[in-house]
């Protein structure tokens, strides 16, 4: 009888310990890159809507960071706001309100950058997401995906995006794309190939923000 009790307590204990260590595996971490270069700075109201959607959808234990795409984006300074929501739902609600306030303050005073370093933002995002140790990691890119690197900025090397979903949002067509759509399609294909080669688990593109916003967090 004592032996049975011992075995049962060991089993229960191991189950409990494994359960405690398992909590991060169910959490979702999202890193959102917001392109502020050129005319894209005017799209900030759309970006705010997406951030609000993410705030409404993410739960306790999840993480969210919003960063701007600048001339050189591989820096923590470009992170506008980041948070890991508390385990308690009431505290998580307070954190979401604070996050919203920060983003709104940024949206009011956004400045367009000269260049667009998407790769740097992706590397920074991957670093942040890996630190969260979340089970599901997503990088959301709110950009036209046209990378323009400044003088001295080196980004032509293989990057690592292992286990990360990439969601490209609101990829608008440029004037040159309208003249020759192949440029637009090639640009997207290149990014998909690059991210997949970097180890990304998925590449999703969402242009219809009115009806397809669920696809951002939908991991199937």
């Amino acid at each position: 009888m004592k032996r049975i009790l011992l075995v049962a307590s060991v089993l229960f204990g191991s189950l409990f310990v494994s359960a405690c260590g398992d909590s991060r595996m169910h959490s979702h971490a999202v890193y959102m890159l917001v392109d502020t270069s050129g005319t894209y700075a005017q799209e900030m109201n759309k970006a705010t809507r997406i951030i609000n959607y993410l705030l409404a959808s993410l739960n306790s234990g999840d993480s969210l960071a919003v960063a701007k795409v600048e001339t050189r984006s591989f820096t923590e300074k470009d992170i506008i706001a980041k948070v890991t929501f508390d385990k308690r739902p009431s505290q998580a609600t307070i954190q979401k309100r604070a996050f919203k306030t920060k983003v709104e303050a940024f949206a009011k005073d956004v400045h367009g950058s000269a260049f667009t370093d998407i790769t740097g933002g992706l590397i920074q995002g991957a670093e942040y997401l890996n630190e969260t140790k979340a089970g599901i990691k997503t990088i959301v890119i709110f950009s036209d995906m046209q990378e323009e690197l400044g003088h001295g900025t080196v980004r032509d090397f293989p990057i690592k995006l292992d286990g990360i979903r990439i969601v490209a949002l609101n990829v608008t067509k440029l004037g040159t794309d309208n003249a020759d759509p192949r440029i637009y399609l090639d640009r997207l294909a290149r990014w998909e190939e690059r991210t997949r080669k970097a180890g990304a688990t998925d590449w999703v593109m969402v242009n219809d923000l009115e009806n397809n916003m669920e696809a951002i967090l939908n991991t199937r």
């Binding site: 189950l15 359960a19 398992d22 909590s23 739960n59 306790s60 234990g61 999840d62 385990k87």
Partner: peptide, 15 residues
């Protein structure tokens, strides 16, 4: 069930 998450945490999983 919902208020219990306020006490023991909403993001902890057993299995």
């Amino acid at each position: 069930a919902l208020p219990m998450s306020e006490m023991v945490g909403a993001s902890d999983y057993i299995t």
